[in-house]
Write a protein that binds this DNA or RNA. Structure first.
Lengths: 360, 360
DNA sequence: TTGAAAGCGCTAACAG
DNA sequence: CTGTTAGCGCTTTCAA
């Protein structure tokens, strides 16, 4: 439980003042080589290391070389890839990174942000949860730079790195429609998450573009796990008029659809790419984002701000790209004009025959 | 670029001394409720937040409530899951977590550890890379607690959380042998990584147990990526006497084997479970570890040390468990006594007929 | 119940 | 080239 060495210990051992030790440690000029050597020897002997928190205290105004990164869930490969990109960028700048997961809880986010700011972070990269982020304004007023990534914050004008989720979803669903699908199910996570909202808007837009409307019986929101998504797909497939295609709006729901065992029997396109999607049968078509690029871009924006960039907040919109692998290219019933929308409400009273799928 | 509020600002605004503000902030008794209310109002108005680094400076000896976590690669789902477990545990203790990736570079590990220690971390959870960790001894002598996870450090007596890699590998390979496989390939990452060494030992032990020896032509070390692993499998399968089974020694090499397109034609067992392994055809049998449990255990050990536990270093060995899904249960040629080991060296001069696989 | 003084480990600014 | 003084924001200790 020995206490840490300080500059005083080194100064004493080398027979110099602490100021000289400071100069040596910080490679400042104007120290006699012999003196420096003596100091360096003492440093090595004592295993001395500069206390960067004390240093920071005295040099307030200078960056502390520490940033905070708050994602939704570090165990999610998407955020893990994003985090790694941020960490790589930070290391290149000789910064260290505090990490945290919000698990979609505003309270937890607030706590973690407070803890990070109490540690005097120079900046925060945030995947903000739903809800008001007014509490950030006060931190920013005191000098903490903030960049949002993956999701924006309502009512807070900060740099942001987003993906055009709506367009990605619309394009994907549009392709399903072109292939003759009309009964396309939407499988979504919590709709208050911004990305989910956007993807749902894109889903609707694809229908609207053609003067069509999605069947409300095929919409499932709030699926928080693979298991919930799998169950939702199973229940959809048991309906009198099951879907002929699934649009799963994130990696979790895509995997849930695969778990359900119905993938292959219906077309499937998912938002978010995931490992081995190309090795399943059929290979899963996705709308892919690039989490590493998102993290790198967020880090770049943040370091520019920390470096003094005071220009108006920037918004960087990356596009998602469709990766057609097969599951999304299963054709639907021929695109004959639909007989009309489903009955006003409730389950259809007379189940029609099972829909036939065209051979691929 | 406004500067951060300090206790002095609050004290001034509330018309009290900084000491009183300190007492209010830290919920110390002996402040008149009215005074406290006045202080709290000032805190809110100014958006004041305690500077925990300055606080820590004065209370040296007390934990700074910050730990460092250094993994091999944060983007690897295995380490991401481990990191999440550590972060969850840390938050429960009101600690923050500095994160870093070593990418199997001792230099980078040393740099990151130094940066963390300069930030006065109370402890480190480390997935150590190969090589000497003597530099840690000096940090530990100055009070930084260290716990190793996933891999031990040679010549450094610290708490460690390991998995019985050797036994896991031996059991898996033993099963392949029982099923009649003799030509089992070993696909490995860098052999200087401890886990790889152990898994290779287990591979050899399974053969030795039965008085057999693996064919040296079927051993591939140093595969650093899916692509390299896929290429290695392809080249193995082109050999005159290809393997009838593959033992892939981590998730990357397992996926590489799948990429190669030969999975299914030969038996496959991989070390490390991965998402969707159960959805491939055939479903991939694995030796599974529990990264979340490993992270949680490491955190528990570390917090005990930080809390003052001075007992001798502990070693916690978790076991890996075989998850049989199909790919590892493809039978090999009937277990007839082998005609003898392969020719002394070089490729076999006379390619024999392709080996027939039993129907499953 | 409140405050003043001292000092944590370090560096800026000045002196010698 | 080297050292002294002062003070970063906070808490400990002691006094009022």
């Amino acid at each position: 439980m020995a206490t840490r060495r300080t500059m005083r210990d080194v100064a004493q051992a080398a027979g110099v003042s602490v100021m000289t030790v400071s100069r040596v440690i910080n490679r400042q000029p104007g120290v006699l080589p012999e003196t420096a050597a003596r100091v360096e020897r003492a440093i090595r002997q004592l295993g001395y290391q500069r206390n960067d928190t004390a240093r920071q205290l005295r040099r307030s105004g200078q960056p502390a070389q520490i940033i905070g990164l708050l994602v939704d869930d570090l165990a999610n490969p998407f955020y893990a890839a994003l985090a790694r990109a941020v960490e790589d960028a930070a290391r290149r700048q000789h910064y260290v990174v505090l990490i945290g997961s919000s698990h979609d809880s505003l309270d937890r986010e607030r706590e973690v942000v407070a803890a990070f700011c109490a540690r005097q972070v120079d900046g925060l990269i945030l995947v903000p949860v739903a809800g008001s982020h007014r509490f950030l304004a006060s931190q920013m007023a005191q000098g903490t730079k903030v960049v949002c990534v993956d999701r924006p914050t309502a009512g807070l004008d900060v740099d942001r790195v987003l993906v055009d989720n709506q367009r990605g979803a619309r394009d994907a669903v549009s392709r399903l429609l072109s292939q003759g699908h009309r009964r396309i199910a939407f499988l979504g996570d919590r709709p208050d998450i911004w990305t989910m909202g956007e993807r749902y808007l894109g889903f609707q837009a694809a229908f609207a573009e053609r003067g069509l409307e999605p069947d409300p019986h095929l919409i499932r929101h709030g699926l928080r796990s693979r298991a919930e998504a799998a169950a939702a797909v199973a229940s959809l497939m048991e309906q009198p008029q099951p879907p002929t295609a699934l649009f799963t709006s994130n990696d979790l729901t895509s995997m849930g659809a695969i778990d359900s065992g119905h993938a292959g029997a219906v077309a499937l396109v998912g938002f978010d790419d995931f490992a081995l999607a190309d090795k399943l049968s059929p290979p899963v078509s996705v709308v892919a984002q690039d989490p590493a690029a998102m993290g790198a871009a967020a880090a770049e924006l943040l370091f520019a701000r920390i470096g003094g960039d005071a220009s108006p907040p920037r918004e960087l919109i990356l596009s998602a790209r469709i990766v057609a692998r097969g599951s999304g290219e299963i054709a639907g019933p021929r695109a004959a004009p639909e007989p009309g929308p489903a009955p006003a409400a409730g389950p259809a009273p007379e189940p029609g025959p099972a829909l036939e799928l065209d051979a691929p």
